[in-house]
């Protein structure tokens, strides 16, 4: 893909905005359409675009497979720990009311963290699946 300079330049311009948009969707999902699932996929799309244009080996340098696998499990664990935090603070599993000074604030923290966990897992799953598919050279 070295000769496609238009693709390379446009991709370089697009990728930061795709990442920014993913973060917006992630953290603004409480107020408008969006949330962890969508943000995760958009975040992954930026890495996939990079790997498509600049080659899979360069893609692996940007997001090493090992880091990606840690994030893959980390998202699920973050979700579980938010649930367990509810137990340790004296309530039930996944009860966010006790996470903050008031129930509404607690709900806000809980939902933000849980969505972050969802976003991490979804994005690293999509990146992992793409890398594995693209890395096959039959």
């Amino acid at each position: 893909m070295n000769r496609h300079s238009i693709l390379r330049v446009v991709a370089k311009l697009m990728i930061p905005y795709i990442l920014l948009f993913a973060l917006y969707v992630q953290f603004h999902g409480d107020f408008g359409p969006g949330g962890g699932f969508q943000a995760g996929v958009i975040f992954a799309a930026a890495f996939i675009l990079y790997a498509l244009i600049f080659g899979i080996e360069n893609g692996r340098k940007v997001m090493p497979a090992r880091v990606n696998r840690i994030l893959l499990a980390g998202g699920v664990l973050l979700y579980c720990f938010v649930g367990l935090a509810g137990i340790f603070l004296g309530s039930e599993f996944l009860d966010y009311n006790v996470l903050g000074p008031t129930p509404v604030a607690g709900q806000h923290y809980g939902i933000l963290l849980v969505e972050l966990g969802v976003g991490l897992t979804v994005s690293s799953t999509m990146i992992a699946i793409f890398y594995v598919f693209a890395g096959q050279d039959i």
Binding site: F93, L94, T125
Partner: peptide, 27 residues
């Protein structure tokens, strides 16, 4: 929950168990 988006609040809070299961399936 103090959030205007009902889908997000149902997804992450009221049906948190459900979503946890879905995330585990994706994982």
């Amino acid at each position: 929950t103090g959030l205007p988006n009902m889908v997000t609040s149902v997804l992450a809070s009221y049906r948190g168990y459900d979503t946890l299961g879905e995330v585990v399936v994706i994982f």
